[in-house]
Amino acid sequence: MDVLIQQLFNGLTLGSVYSLVALGLTLVYGILHIPNFAHGALYMVGGYITLTMMTQAGLNYWIAIVVSCLVVGGLAVLMERLVFHPLRHAPAIHDKIAAIGIMLFLEALVQFIWGAEYQTMVSPYGQVVNVAGVTLTMQRLLIIVATVVVMIILYIFLKKTFTGATIIAMSQNRDGANLVGINTNRVAMLTFLVSGALAAIAVSLSAPINLVFPGMGHLVLTKAFVIIILGGMGSIPGAIVGGYILGFTEALGATYISNDYKDVIAFVILVLILTIKPNGLFAAKGGH
């Protein structure tokens, strides 16, 4: 029983991180219909920025996260302006290749600056606490709570502010948004900014319980893709629910099926989904 609770808790932690990453990916997909293959690289860069801010600049953990959000968000905006925007009318294969190019560049750059070694991020919340018979670290608790807070802020931003409403409007109907006078360029940039910031938050929260290395974005990215296909490409609630589902599945799968193959679970889920439903679980309605 304890094991089960412990694993459910782990699933919640994992799911939180996945949800945040998937949220960024799904926001961008919703607005621009681009599967951003460089999103995992943004996540990775975020990890290094936070780490460096803490170790080199001696910043407080939270301030380091804010810096990381700004840097990664800025990087994402730059990507939108310099790469995705010029490619918006190109064949579908091009934006993916361009994104892969960015990803390869960022990984090599990070490796050049910080080296290929695995690094650890020491968070100020390493204490072990005991809640209801389950031992857990403060950091894990923090991940869960912080994720919920971030989601609430995002919700308020999207639902209660005008800027957020434009993002929603554009993701529902780009041409329509253009017609009613929404500056689609500005919205696209904003969406990339939010997407990058979410990736930075996700990695800053999870890095202390994982490791920081140049290839750390690969698996996360692929799993985030699985999640947004699971939850419907472009769907915000879908990304959140999908993230937690995958988190729980992996945590339980690691215990009850095989720890070695826990990373395969996500991909098997995806392969199954796409095998049965080639256009994703919640394919676009209607159509012409």
């Binding site: 390869l104 560049f105 090599a108």
Partner: peptide, 12 residues
């Protein structure tokens, strides 16, 4: 190890 610093942007 860093060749992608050149080839990545070239790709894009």
């Amino acid at each position: 190890d860093y060749r992608m610093m050149i080839f990545g942007p070239i790709l894009t």
